[in-house]
Design a protein around this nucleic acid. Structure first.
Lengths: 200, 200
DNA sequence: CTACAATGTGAACGGTGATTACATTACCGA
DNA sequence: TCGGTAATGTAATCACCGTTCACATTGTAG
């Protein structure tokens, strides 16, 4: 009964479920790469054991964070262009993908780097959304091509560019140079699939 | 002075420096994904503090392991084809790259997944070797093309395929299907750069 | 043979994921 | 309004981890 009148530290958080995800996102944005359960709990102003009422284990919380990340990645891509149907527009989306990875490296690692359960979580749905978005782009841009392998190839190319930059295997000090590299790589891939040529 | 005549547990390991790397490699091969310093020490038959005589911290040991991994990746690639100069041969190398990632996922994650020091370790040299190997392939295969961006694009494509399969974003249950996917993607990329067309 | 440098040990510190028993609170039916 | 039950948060605890320190042991140079 200490300080009962003030609003400080109510016993119940209110919405810890999403508060934890928000706290985790904050930590990632601040450069924390490990996302310890305890650190997230601290940031949310709650005891170390509290998160386990809402997430079975660290894996589960991280997956929830990753799912939000996929949504934000999708936002960033659609912001670059809502519905690309030309190589130029597709290149802009590709650049946005790599820029997302470089701008939010810790989140990107959580989304793609950590070994995760293939089966039972929301991540598969979220990544499926990204995949479908790309698939749609490809189908609009190259109606003659087989969309599935081409979409896969483009996703892999762009994702690989993002990963290699993020891991320091490709120099990412100059954003313009990065954009040029992405532009060149994607165009190289796309010139293979102009109407009239075989894509698979 | 217990059991002085037997060869069991001599106080000095002999070659702990490389023994630790070997132990770490064993653990990775057995599926351990975390590579805890203590577990490596245990496997090497040594106290938890001993590794610190040879590696400044976990980062340093992991980097040494990664460097060995790069060497083995290079071996796997050259085993697929020592010196590719045609798209067909290059495809074989690409498939070998992805198969390496799928066959030794924990090692691959150590090599590429973990955030690492960009500056002062042997990893940059080792990745540079992989990069140069690819660059050489591209130069031989496409003498008319600008090797640097094309080599980057191919590396990114193949690495992206490996990463997405490893993270479960692409189905990797059927090795033949994986190989087909890699084949299709790389060929799509390569048809863009046949002599007479612009690569950048 | 002796001193020194190199190498390995054991104990310790703080941090982590996770579980358990317990405390507090919200909410719903009487 | 009251009381009980389910939901939610806490404190204590366990095992493990990275890392450091003082100390023990061993190889080796002089």
């Amino acid at each position: 009964m200490v300080g009962a009148m003030t609003t400080k530290t109510p016993y119940h958080h209110g919405d810890l479920q999403s508060g934890l995800v928000r706290a985790a996102m904050e930590l990632l944005e601040e450069g924390e790469t490990d996302l310890s359960m305890r650190a997230v709990a601290r940031r949310a102003g709650v005891s170390p054991a509290a998160p386990y009422r809402h997430y079975e284990d660290r894996e589960a919380l991280v997956s929830a964070v990753a799912a939000v990340g996929y949504g934000e990645l999708a936002e960033a891509l659609t912001a670059a262009h809502p519905s690309p149907s030309t190589p130029e527009q597709l290149v802009r989306v590709a650049i946005a993908y790599v820029q997302f990875a470089l701008a939010r490296p810790a989140l990107f690692r959580v989304m793609f780097g950590e070994p995760c359960n293939r089966d039972n979580n929301e991540r598969v749905a979220a990544t499926g959304a990204v995949s479908l978005y790309l698939q749609g782009i490809v189908e609009r841009s190259f109606p003659d091509a087989d969309a599935e392998p081409l979409g896969t190839a483009i996703w892999a190319l762009v994702h690989g560019l993002a990963s290699l930059h993020l891991d320091g295997k490709l120099d990412s000090t100059d954003p313009a140079a990065v954009a040029d590299r992405v532009n060149a790589a994607v165009r190289a891939m796309l010139t293979a699939t102009q109407p009239g040529r075989d894509a698979a």
